[in-house]
Design a protein around this nucleic acid. Structure first.
Lengths: 189, 189
DNA sequence: ACCTGAACACCGTTCAAGT
DNA sequence: ACCTGAACACCGTTCAAGT
């Protein structure tokens, strides 16, 4: 494995274990067994190393989601699986999730490309579900954005502990997404 | 103005101008005209200073949202105003928005209380709109969570530039929330 | 009760130098 | 082309000391 890949891998592990604050170039170098500024031979800055981590995660996610969707019989089941996967990802790897959707000062081509591809796959799936009459008609891009916004918001709020504060009505993020799908289906005429 | 309030105010300004990374205890002290460790006489750590900033912001937001809602004639218009306010907040003050919903390692009583009160006000409003027959019946806590998740997700994705990548179907966060309200209304029987 | 100044153990980044 | 070690200008936090 090249030094570059090793640096990305070590940064990912540090991110999972201690959040983005735990990712220091010095500790990354230590893990890989190089000096604390060897990373500068592969990345112009710490932020660009983090962008590489985020892009790799997004690419992995897209792969996993594509295979999960392919396993389902109906486009409806595939769409539900994709949304549930999105939420499971946010809850299991909150640091990676937050990194990917964090505020980037650098424009990483790798990162924007990965995000765009994920969006496109989602739109195709939504269009298929609409064609099956399970979701209301309308611009599939806009419908996909609505579904993604809800899944993203539910996952982000849940990860931050702002969703369920105990009590009767508290819903899991998965339930909220299912509620949305049910309401949308109920709105089909 | 006491030193404590001055520290919170200076931290808020630094947050707006340069993001959370720009908030250093040394710079906060500089702005207020005290030494770089005077903050420790008011806050046990930097994170608790940031928690105070977040709590103050949340309290301000709640006030503003309450008055905006009170100005509307129908509960439906009030609910829409609240959701649009939420989005406008995220887009105008992204650093504050992200701080409030960031991952907290410290448990700030002030912060959880403010979050709980905001949630309660939202639930009451949703129940009123349901009673008017404009939203489907069902647990108002769960319906409020769905609306909040969508508004939050749309705002967060938009703030990160992950929502509209140009092109025809690209929807603003406000449009997505309106779409949701329209679909939910369409699902009322 | 509140504040200061020195000190400690960290950072990211730069640079001259090595292979 | 890739890496190292010293150096610089920062950090958060602690502590002894002052009023």
């Amino acid at each position: 494995m090249g030094t570059r890949e090793a640096l990305v891998e070590a940064a990912t592990t540090l991110l999972d274990d201690g959040g983005v604050a735990a990712v220091t170039l010095r500790e990354v170098g230590r893990q890989v067994g190089v000096s604390h500024n060897a990373p500068y031979k592969h990345f112009a800055s710490k932020e660009l190393l983090l962008a590489a981590v985020a892009a790799a995660e997004l690419a992995r996610r897209r792969e996993e989601i594509a295979t999960a969707a392919a396993r389902r019989r109906s486009p409806e089941a595939a769409l539900r699986a994709v949304l549930h996967h999105y939420i499971a990802w946010a809850l299991e790897r909150p640091a990676r999730f937050r990194l990917v959707f964090g505020s980037w000062n650098v424009a990483s081509e790798e990162l924007t490309k990965a995000a765009h591809e994920a969006q496109t796959a989602m739109v195709d799936l939504v269009a298929a579900v609409q064609a099956a009459g399970v979701l209301p008609a309308g611009d599939p891009v806009r419908m996909a954005s609505l579904l993604r916004a809800t899944a993203h918001g539910a996952a982000d709020l849940a990860a931050a502990g702002h969703l369920a504060e105990g009590g009767k009505g508290n819903a899991s993020p998965e339930q909220l997404v299912d509620d949305l799908l049910a309401h949308l289906n109920g709105a089909v005429r």
